[in-house]
C-alpha cells in the first residue's frame, strides 16, 4: 500500500513537470486559437462595424439567417467545395504515388524530395506572382499548351475565363503543396518495418500485392493525417485567390469562403457578418474532420 502511494506520488510529481512544460503551449494556443474562436462566436450575434465606436447591436441569429439565404455566400460555399474537391483528392493521390516512387528508387531520391518540396517554402505571394507571369496571355502557360496541342495563338484565358481561373488556382495550390505531403508520406513509408516486405517476398508476393496488402493498410494513419491536413488547408485557402483577383481575375468563380470573410470584414467593415461566416466555416471543417476520423477508425490495422 505504501509502495503504491509512493509510486503514485512520483507519477504525480513527474506529471507536474509535464504540465509545466506544456503550459506555455496551452496558454499560447488558448490566446491565439480559443479566444479568437469564442470572440468570433460572440461577435457573430451582433451587427458590428469595424470602425464604429457605438455599442454593437445584438441581432441574434440574423447574421446566420442572412448568410444562409444569400446567393453570394452559397456561391462561396460552391467555390470552396469545387476548389477543395478539385485540389485535395489529386493532392492526396499524387503525393502518395510520388512518395512510393521516390522511396522505391535507389539513386536521386533526395534530389526528388528537395525538388518537390521547394515550392512549399515559398510564400503564397511569391507563388502567385510566379504563376501570374505564367498565366499572362503572353506567358509560358499559353506557349506550353499551344506547343503541346499545336494550337498556335490561342489564348486559354487562364485568369479570365470562369472555368479556367478555378483550374488555375488548383494548379498553383497543387504545385505548392504536393512536396509537403510527399515528405509526410515518405516518413510514413519509412516507419513500415522492412521485415514485413522480406517475409512477403519469401512467400512470393509481387510488388503490386506488396503495395495493396502491406503498404496501403499500414500507411493508413498517414493517409488519414494527410487527407485531413490537405482538406483543411484547401478549405482555408485564401492567398492565391486573393492575389489572382487583385490582378484582374474575376472574383465570383474563386470567391472562396475565406476571401468572402476578408472582403466582408475588411473591405465592407461588417465584422459581425464576417464572424458568422468564419463560425460556419469552422463548423464545416469540424464536421469533415470528425467524419474522416470516424471512417478511418472502422478498420484499423496493427503490426
Amino acid at each position: 500500500m505504501r509502495q503504491k502511494t509512493k509510486t503514485k506520488s512520483i507519477e504525480k510529481h513527474l506529471s507536474h513537470w509535464g504540465i509545466t512544460f506544456v503550459l506555455p503551449s496551452i496558454v499560447f494556443f488558448s490566446l491565439f486559437n480559443f479566444y479568437p474562436i469564442l470572440n468570433a462566436l460572440y461577435t457573430s450575434f451582433f451587427k458590428k462595424k469595424v470602425l464604429s465606436l457605438a455599442a454593437p447591436e445584438f441581432v441574434g441569429l440574423k447574421n446566420y439567417i442572412y448568410l444562409l439565404t444569400s446567393a453570394n455566400f452559397w456561391n462561396s460555399i460552391r467555390a470552396t467545395a469545387v476548389f477543395t474537391i478539385g485540389t485535395f483528392l489529386p493532392l492526396l493521390l499524387a503525393s502518395l504515388i510520388f512518395a512510393v516512387f521516390i522511396t522505391s528508387i535507389k539513386r536521386g531520391n533526395k534530389f526528388y524530395q528537395m525538388a518537390f518540396y521547394s515550392p512549399a517554402v515559398l510564400s503564397s505571394v511569391v507563388s502567385a506572382a510566379i504563376w501570374l507571369l505564367i498565366f499572362d496571355p503572353r506567358g509560358l502557360g499559353n506557349q506550353w499548351v499551344n506547343n503541346l496541342l499545336g494550337t498556335h495563338g490561342t489564348d486559354h484565358n487562364w485568369l479570365a475565363d470562369a472555368m479556367m481561373v478555378q483550374l488555375s488556382t488548383m494548379i498553383v495550390y497543387f504545385w505548392k503543396y504536393i512536396g509537403y505531403f510527399i515528405i509526410i508520406f515518405i516518413a510514413g513509408l519509412a516507419s513500415i518495418p522492412k521485415s514485413l516486405y522480406e517475409a512477403a517476398r519469401i512467400d512470393g508476393t509481387s510488388g503490386w500485392q506488396e503495395f495493396w496488402r502491406i503498404t496501403l493498410p499500414l500507411l493508413k494513419p498517414t493517409i488519414v493525417l494527410v487527407s485531413i491536413m490537405s482538406m483543411l488547408q484547401c478549405l482555408k485557402t485564401f492567398g492565391i485567390q486573393y492575389l489572382f483577383t487583385q490582378s484582374g481575375a474575376p472574383q465570383d468563380p474563386i470567391n472562396v469562403i475565406t476571401m468572402n470573410i476578408y472582403n466582408t470584414g475588411i473591405r465592407d467593415h461588417r465584422i459581425g457578418r464576417a464572424s458568422a461566416m468564419s463560425i460556419i466555416l469552422f463548423i464545416i471543417m469540424l464536421v469533415f474532420t470528425w467524419i474522416q476520423f470516424k471512417s478511418s477508425k472502422s478498420d484499423e490495422v496493427e503490426y
Partner: peptide
C-alpha cells in the same frame, strides 16, 4: 460613402461578368 468600396466591387463584378464570363 461608407459603402463605396463594396459598390465598386459590385460594378467590377458586373463589368467582369459581361467581359469575361
Amino acid at each position: 460613402g461608407e459603402e463605396s468600396a463594396k459598390l465598386q466591387e459590385l460594378i467590377k463584378g458586373a463589368v467582369e461578368s459581361v467581359m469575361l464570363s
